[in-house]
Every structure is written in structure tokens, then in C-alpha cells.
Design a protein around this nucleic acid. Structure first.
Length: 290
DNA sequence: GCCCAGGGGTAGT
DNA sequence: ACTACCCATGGG
């Protein structure tokens, strides 16, 4: 099917900016899994048509069109988000306004995906102290361990992300053999102890309570908790601070500190949608200074 | 071989 | 609260 896209969307940057790990581009098409449905996107930027192929006709109970619109965050008003953040920057850090425009105007089509919280929790636990390529390989290795999860769109194979119950069948040694290193025991502990209903219930809690719950697990620290809150639960007040964001804040605002103090800094600078702006910054600094 | 990566836990101040 | 140190592994 095809759906018209009449809002700003940069699909390449959205799927390639580091918020998601299992999408890949092949023959000018994007292939990936969105909330349990395998998809192939073919986006013609000129005609503003998004061609969609899939392995089934729905995404988590919604029809395909609405499911894709939801997954891609196409209902987010990017202009409102930019306006809100700009107002906050003008008020508190006017010297930063020119840089703010430069960053946002070069990344404006990026949208925050509505990804599966469970997948985000596992994948960001595996992300610590690793570059994005390594993380992508790990996530795909883990998913491909379960051949029963394989689905096809035409000839193209996909692996749906394993459930908690499926992961419980694996041992620390098997995680080790997948190259997870010291994260293996964290993952094993997580899947053995998590109450999945309790986990999903944090969606409606304030950010501080999400972080408190998530950081109660071994291996989930402040930064990863913010990633899960932002990318899994769409809490736009989350502000993940990794080495890149930390360097950026030091360079442009002269601040240093741990992930928690710098998150508060990000919230003060950019306001209620700081998570969105964080993703723009992340893409900007990783593509411009090189 | 060396350095870095979407960090976190722990022990010692 | 802050710091130093360790942790496994792959990629550039």
C-alpha cells in the first residue's frame, strides 16, 4: 500500500540516527520490524509517497496505515517542538540561538519512533560502552537466535524481537558466545527478575519514577534508563547523556558532570521536548564534525 | 597495537 | 557526593 506524507519526514536520518538498531537499507529500501510487524519502506521524497510492504496487515492491533503513522511519529508537530525549545533557549541561553537554528534546521525531518519498550530495554542494556555498529550486530545476533521468529516479506527474511519468555531459555554462556561480554550477566539477571506487566505500567508515570524503576535493575544506569524512557515510552522530557552529548554540553555551555546533572541541564536549556532536541543534537554532532 | 565506543558497578574517599 | 578503577569486545 501507499500512504501520502504531507508532513516533514527525513526517513534516512530517522532510521539512521542511532535511536533504532535493526533497520537497514537495501536497494534504496528500508527493511525492519516495527512493534511486531516486518516492514519494507520505499519512500519517494519527491512525490511524498511512502510505499509499504509487510508480512501482515496490522501493527499491534492497528491497521497498517495508522500503525506506520504512529510508529514514525508522524503526528508529532515538529514546528511546535522546535518553537517550544527555541523559546526556552532564547530565554535562558540567547548566545546559543544561532547554533540551535543550525542544528535543528539541518535535522528537522528526524522523528522519534514509537518503538517496543521491551526491545528498547534489552537493546540499550546491550549498548553500553559500544559503538553503534557493534550494537547493531549484537541486536541482530540476538534476534536471529530464534528461528521460530522468522517471517518473510516476499523473499526478504526478518526476525521479530524475542519475548521475555523466549529469552529466559538462554543461559549466560549463550549470551557470552554472542559477544555480549560483561553485559551477559546483566541481561540474564534482567530476564530472570523482571515483571513484564510492572515494566509496561511505568509508561504513565512521570520520568523520575520511570528512571527509579529502570535503574533498579543491574546494568541499567541513568543513561540507559533515559534511552528506554525516550525511545520506548516516548517521554520527551528524557535526555540521555552519553559521551557525545556530554562533550557537546561541555563545548557549548561549559558544563561537566554525571548523566543525571547533565540531564537536568538539558531540560533547563530545551524545556519539555528536550528529548527530541537531544536526538537532533546527537545526529548533528556525529555527522558534522567529521 | 592503540584508542574509542549511545556506561555501569564498586570501593575508597 | 565525587573519584578511580575495572569490566569484554569489536571497529576504525
Amino acid at each position: 500500500m501507499e500512504i501520502p506524507i504531507n508532513v516533514s519526514l527525513d526517513l534516512d536520518k530517522t532510521l539512521n540516527c542511532g535511536q533504532t538498531f535493526r533497520w537497514y537499507k537495501k536497494n534504496n529500501q528500508w527493511l525492519g520490524v516495527a512493534n511486531g510487524t516486518a516492514l519494507i519502506f520505499d519512500f519517494n521524497q519527491k512525490s511524498d509517497l511512502l510505499k509499504i510492504q509487510s508480512n501482515c496487515e496490522e501493527i499491534k492491533g492497528e491497521n497498517l496505515e495508522n500503525g506506520v503513522i504512529h510508529y514514525l511519529g508522524l503526528n508529532d508537530s515538529l514546528q511546535s517542538i522546535k518553537g517550544s525549545a527555541l523559546k526556552q533557549v532564547e530565554k535562558s541561553y540567547p548566545d546559543f540561538v544561532p547554533k540551535f537554528h543550525e542544528i535543528v534546521d539541518t535535522t528537522i525531518g528526524i522523528r522519534l519512533l514509537r518503538q517496543d519498550p521491551w526491545e528498547m530495554l534489552v537493546e540499550y542494556l546491550l549498548s553500553t560502552q559500544s559503538n553503534i555498529n557493534t550494537i547493531k550486530n549484537r541486536c541482530e545476533t540476538l534476534a536471529a537466535f530464534f528461528p521460530e521468529n522468522q517471517v518473510f516479506v516476499g523473499e526478504e527474511p526478518f526476525f521479530l524481537f524475542p519475548s521475555v519468555e523466549q529469552l529466559r531459555r538462554l543461559s549466560v554462556d549463550e549470551f557470552q558466545s554472542m559477544g555480549f561480554g560483561y553485559r551477559s550477566k546483566w541481561l540474564k539477571n534482567l530476564i530472570d527478575t523482571i515483571d513484564i506487566r510492572e515494566f509496561h505500567a511505568i509508561k504513565n508515570m512521570p520520568l523520575e519514577q520511570k528512571i527509579n524503576y529502570l535503574t533498579s535493575f543491574n546494568g541499567i544506569g541513568f543513561k540507559v534508563a533515559n534511552c528506554v524512557s525516550l525511545f520506548g515510552f516516548s517521554d520527551f522530557k528524557a535526555f540521555p547523556v552519553d559521551v557525545w552529548i556530554s562533550r557537546f554540553l561541555n563545548q557549548f555551555f561549559g558544563v561537566t558532570g554525571n548523566a543525571e546533572s547533565l540531564m537536568i541541564m538539558g531540560q533547563e536549556i530545551f524545556g519539555d521536548f528536550c528529548g527530541y532536541i537531544q536526538e537532533y543534537i546527537f545526529y548533528y554532532i556525529r555527522t558534522s564534525c567529521r
